[in-house]
Design a protein around this nucleic acid. Structure first.
Lengths: 219, 219
DNA sequence: CGCTTTTCGCGAAATAATTATAGATTAAAG
DNA sequence: CTTTAATCTATAATTATTTCGCGAAAAGCG
């Protein structure tokens, strides 16, 4: 396989967790890490880890594993986390503030350069080092700051209206933390972060576990 | 198929978004909704929506669709969102506070009955109506309040230690919002909410779009 | 009423993702 | 220097998930 398909979503979603482990191996001074070790840490199959890592193009050495530094670099490059992604955040409530304070994003190339809100008490101040502007200044700032993406953390009632503003201001990628399905032109990328879906999975797992226990008790 | 497999994760993750649309149809007074309409709203294939909904056991009528009230009830029941899930939250920072204020959880059967933190200023007060206790009171309160699950929103450095406490206190399900892979006994369910994985997907989408544009420009 | 259209359900086909197998490579032990 | 065990790659097989094709049901309409 010369160029494996790069659109395997499950694989892409696993890469950050691999990165975590590989980086901690790096901190421990290890030069190599094997797929087996990563798999054990994450309770996955070694074969799956190796296949996922193959996507980055790095080849491992039998008996010792993959070169840590190269692997980290390759994952960063695959995700374009080695380049700066300038982001803005709209809605500086609790969730928005939490995201601005999330250090990991910085390491992953995301730079939240400005936040926007309606709250007069927040406007003009800064949160976790990010200046907060009024919504009215958004278009202007998007241009001025050369923004690549927007994190949307407004109350759901305002989500679509703000998304429309963002699109008109030229934003091409929106990370949507609201529970609203946004209607945007097809060339605009929307990544929806859906808390309910995680809760749904958890709920079903709990139900299955409980019914298993009930069965075990009955038999 | 008499009993379709109930462990189709992608399907389960889509159910909440279906629910959203079906409930808004209900608010508009509609008695029936077709898979086609739901699919259009979410930009999915109608066939996929129908197949997913089949999991709930509800049968639709040709030409008009699925009965709204029954469908909602069936999804709730499938996810056990028609029963109360008593939850606690550990780590009343920005993210934790945001989650406590997230009204949708209440509608979905989740009742956050207590929060725990180390911050003296928070302990004794309440946030969004949820009382905040000290971490030391946790085991006691878990028993007293008959808690089913725990939302973990502490700084990653404390995640494993708190998880150990939770397990010892008898918690069987943890919704993990930290970026730490928790080590817990296998009978304990952990649902990890991984922000980085969403960002990874978004990043790759952005890269592909940009390289497409570059190609289009070059040709 | 009979024709047309929409939508459903089922079984089958196609596609995507994971897991298994086989052979090759290399470090370390004997 | 040979053997052993761990790990890799590549290909094949399996399993999971999505999509298709077809016949049937039901509403709307002439």
């Amino acid at each position: 396989m010369q160029t494996p398909k790069v659109t395997n979503q499950p694989t892409i979603k696993r890469l950050p967790s691999y990165l975590h482990i590989i980086e901690s191996a790096q901190r421990e001074g290890k030069e190599y890490i094997s797929g087996t070790v990563i798999a054990e840490e994450l309770k996955l199959e070694p074969i799956q880890v190796r296949k996922d890592l193959a996507l980055t193009g790095i080849v491992g050495k039998p008996r010792i594993g993959f070169p840590v530094d190269e692997l980290i670099q390759a994952i960063y490059s695959f995700l374009e986390w080695d380049k700066e992604h300038r982001a803005i955040l709209i809605g500086a409530g609790n969730l928005g503030t939490a995201l601005m304070g999330y250090r990991e994003f910085n390491k992953r190339g995301m730079n939240i350069v400005a936040a926007f809100d309606l709250d007069k008490n927040k406007i003009g101040n800064s949160l976790h080092g990010t200046p907060v502007y009024s919504l009215g200044q958004m278009s202007e700032k998007i241009e001025e700051l050369e923004v690549d993406m927007a994190l949307l953390t407004v109350p759901s009632g305002h989500a679509q209206a703000v998304a429309d503003l963002l699109v008109r201001a030229g934003i091409r990628a929106i990370w949507n933390f609201t529970n609203v399905k946004l209607k945007v032109p097809e060339e605009v990328i929307v990544q929806k972060e859906d808390l309910s879906s995680g809760y749904a999975v958890l709920s079903v797992k709990m139900r299955l576990t409980n019914s298993q226990k009930a069965q075990a008790g009955a038999s």
